[in-house]
Amino acid sequence: MKFEGESQLEGSKDAVWDALNDPRVIEKCTPGCQSLSIVAPDSYELVTKIGIASISGTYKGSMRLGDRLGREQYAMFAEGAGPIGTMSVAGTVALRENGAATSVNYSFEVQVGGAMTGMAQRALLPIAKLLTKQFFKSVDKLLAGASLPAAEEGGT
C-alpha cells in the first residue's frame, strides 16, 4: 500500500527543515503521542494513544530518520504495534520553497501485519494518511506560534 500527499507549511524551508528533524517537535506533533524517548541520534521510541472514531488503543512504536539529501529531503521509517496489529511506514519527505511558505511532499509505503479483523484492514491506509496530515498540520500550527494542548488524543 502506498500513499502520497502534500502539505503547505507557513515558514521558511530552513525553519521547516529544522522543525521536522527535531525530536521535541515530533513528540509534540505526532497525534496522540504520550511519550518519545531518544534511543540514539535520529532514533526514537514512541508511545501513542490513538482515538480515531471507534478505533482506539495504545500503540508502541519506533521511528528513524536518515538518508538526508542536503536540507531538501530525508527518509523516515516508522513502525508501531498495538491492538489493531502492526504497521510499518517507510518513505521520503521532500521540502520545496513556495514563496514565503514551504511545500512538503511525502511519499510512503505502508505494510501491515498481525491478526487483524477485516474491518481494521480497511481502515489502516486511511488512518495512516489522516495521521500524517494531522502531523504536518500540527507542525504548521507550531511554526505559526500557536501552542498545542498537552497529550492530545489523535483523531479529533
Binding site: S54, I55, A120
Partner: peptide, 22 residues
C-alpha cells in the same frame, strides 16, 4: 472516552477485537 452504542452491529465486534476500546 465514551462511545454511543445503539444497535451495536459494528461497534461490538470492534470492541471484541479490541480495535475499539471505549
Amino acid at each position: 472516552n465514551a462511545k454511543i452504542v445503539a444497535g451495536g452491529q459494528s461497534l461490538v465486534p470492534m470492541m471484541n477485537f479490541r480495535v475499539a476500546q471505549p
